[in-house]
Write a protein that binds this DNA or RNA. Structure first.
Length: 590
RNA sequence: GGUCCGGUAGCUCAGCUGAAUAGAGCAACAGCCUUCUAAGCUGUGGGUCAUUGGUUUGAAUCCAAUCCGGAUCACCA
């Protein structure tokens, strides 16, 4: 049980005993004590002062005496300032904690709970390469999966590839018209970029044709509908749906180019999936559910034969779930896929990492699943994240104003190379070791940059200002780790910690380390890796202050040295495990 | 127009289940390497927490209204 939980339980019990009122653990408002006051944790008494009509001073003293008398292992002393009841935890608790955990490689990781969670993320289109927005999505998905695993959940990572539809046909048409048979190999281009170039090409030509038609006197709408290249594309979609061999062949070929490109990127950033679904296989799903919904009167049929659901009672609108020609719409596919995934994996929770422009859609999806009483319905959680925008506005792949994922990754790695070379601390590294280190630092910086902020907030990325390597960043944390490792390489740790008392900073670091499982749990509960990122940063920052003030190797005596080595060891461990949960590796040297 | 999200230091962001003098990082300025890795540490300056009103012993935090920015409300996906 964490120290915080112990305090809450003790205080709640004390109040129950002393005043016979019903107080639960969660009613205890507990903060870390502000540095300018004496103590470790502070209970805010005001609500009890009011309830019990007692003077805070008197209440605090009665409580303090009771706590000291009945929990003498936990509390060392207390003081009361206004309504703030400051508790000092006894050093024995901290030392015991350190002794128990400093050698525990899996500190913070919970035992299996039997809970199963699916995390869906990435979900790219196969007509263009990945961009910065995808990276935010992928890093978030990966990280939340890791965090859930650390909290004892079994996790299935999944991806739904958007591999069909008009946008795919656009690239295909443009390739047919302009490529003269070129391939990624023949042009030495990464497959997803190769296909993406034709998507851009399509839009150029399309725009030109529309302009021409407008110049000939057509209005804009008509022009857009009548541009020859668009008509060809629509025909191609029909041919695809009809299964015309040459179209299907081209579709398969171009998609395979894209997948090869994606795989390269996924491998580079260290991401993978346990199961990939393809929309070309799932887009017809959900039909049986429409039937079921009609039977249950969840859905209703309009005169023209289209099927709808009325969500106005729930504050939403009417939504179509099946077209009059009997084909599924997007949301129906999603319902069908939700059912299919549940049948395959029986996960009781399903997290969708999808941008916040789909908030409404996801709300509707969950609601419909609930109304259909699908077993997966209540477990649906939309991990919504804000768009990544440029200072000039939104990224638009159609217009080519995107921050390309591969370019950005390469740039980050180059910067880390350059900085590492400037510092010259690892000149003895081999080529492979160096490459690994540059990747670790460059990708770490990028991942941390995207994960350290609240997912639901949109973020602005300025390509002109490169991502920082100082302060609240991954390299700062990685550096702290490397520095500790350097000390641990040079000094023997004795297993037994002797009680020599704790200096302020020694205790502060231990206190912070003790919060690790709490931070991991909070990140999981709130589906928010930024909580963990901030926690790890605080650990590193606090350790660095400690490090600057107190020598470890040259400590005042052997016992102090050993104590500090244990602190250093556990700090390194927490950083390593914590960063792993963000998908970031941490070097032994840098 | 309805719904949802956001507005905190020059910049990027924490804090938002109410509680002590609103915190970090970056940038600026001033210090600290003959001692464990200076990608570090210490300090200084920098705030009408969008605005107004309300609830409360106490509001950045809760409520209401207003202003600003964004998303969404497709027989697109």
């Amino acid at each position: 049980m964490s120290v915080i939980e112990q305090i809450k339980t003790s205080v709640a019990k004390a109040i129950n005993q002393l005043y016979s009122i019903e107080v639960l653990d969660k009613d205890i408002l507990l903060n870390t004590t502000k540095p300018e006051f004496e103590g470790d944790y502070t209970v805010v008494l005001f609500s009890f002062v009011k309830q019990l009509k007692k003077d805070p001073e008197a209440l605090g003293n009665e409580l303090g005496n009771y706590l000291l008398a009945n929990n003498n292992n936990l509390f060392a002393e207390y003081n009361i300032i206004k309504g703030f009841f400051n508790l000092t935890i006894s050093n024995k608790i901290w030392l015991h904690f350190l002794q128990e955990q400093s050698n525990n490689k899996s500190y913070g990781v919970a035992l299996p709970t039997g809970n199963k969670v699916m995390v869906e993320y990435a979900s790219p289109n196969t007509n263009k390469p990945l961009h910065l927005g995808h990276l935010r999505n992928i890093f978030l998905g990966w990280s939340i999966a890791e965090i859930l695993k650390s909290n004892g959940n079994e996790v299935v990572k999944t991806c739904i590839v958007n591999d069909r539809g008009i946008h795919i046909c656009k690239s295909m048409i443009a390739w047919k018209m302009f490529a003269n048979g070129a391939t990624p190999e023949s042009t030495n281009t990464k497959g997803d970029h190769f296909v993406g170039d034709y998507y851009v090409k399509f839009n150029e030509v399309y725009k030109q044709q529309v302009d021409e038609l407008i110049a000939k006197g057509m209005d804009e709408k008509q022009a857009e509908a009548n541009a020859p290249i668009m008509k060809d594309t629509q025909q191609m979609l029909l041919d695809w749906e009809a299964g015309k061999p040459d179209v299907i062949g081209l579709w398969k070929k171009m998609n395979s180019w894209v997948y090869t490109g994606f795989d390269e990127t996924y491998q580079k950033i260290g991401s993978d999936f346990d199961k990939t679904y393809y929309e070309s296989n799932t887009y017809l799903l959900g039909k049986s559910l429409v039937e079921k919904g009609l039977e249950k009167n969840v859905f209703y049929k309009k005169e023209d034969g289209s099927v709808w659901i009325d969500l106005t009672q729930d504050g939403l609108d009417e939504k179509i779930v099946q077209r009059k020609d009997g084909t599924s719409v997007y949301i129906t596919q999603d319902i069908g896929l939700a059912e299919q995934r549940y049948n395959e994996y029986k996960a009781n929770e399903s997290i969708y990492v999808i941008g916040d422009e789909q908030n409404y859609h996801m709300k509707v999806l969950k609601l419909i699943c609930q109304k259909l009483q699908l077993p997966s319905a209540d477990g649906i959680y939309h991990l919504s994240y804000g768009m990544v925008e440029l200072p000039t506005g939104k990224m638009k792949s159609r217009e080519g104003t995107v921050v390309d994922a591969d370019d950005l990754i390469e740039e980050m790695i180059n910067i880390s190379k350059q900085k590492t070379e400037e510092l010259g601390k690892v000149n003895d590294f081999s080529e492979t070791e160096l490459k690994e280190l540059y990747n670790m630092i460059g990708l770490g910086a990028l991942k941390f940059f995207l994960l350290r902020v609240d997912p639901k907030k949109k973020m602005i990325f300025n390509p002109e200002e490169s991502i920082d390597f100082h302060g609240f960043t991954a390299p700062f944390i990685q550096y702290t780790h490397a520095r500790i490792k350097s000390i641990l390489r040079k000094n023997e740790v004795d297993n037994i910690i002797n009680d020599t008392g704790l200096l302020k900073l020694e205790k502060e670091v231990i206190k912070q380390l003790e919060l690790f499982p709490t931070a991991l749990l909070e990140a999981a509960q709130e589906h928010d890796p930024s909580k963990l990122a901030i926690y790890i940063f605080n650990v590193a920052q606090l350790f660095n202050s400690f490090y600057a003030q107190h020598s470890i190797a040259q400590a005042e005596n052997e016992n102090k040295k050993n104590l500090r080595l244990h602190i250093a060891q556990l700090t390194a461990q927490v950083i390593k495990t914590g960063m792993k949960n963000l998908g970031i590796d941490v070097p032994e040297r840098m």
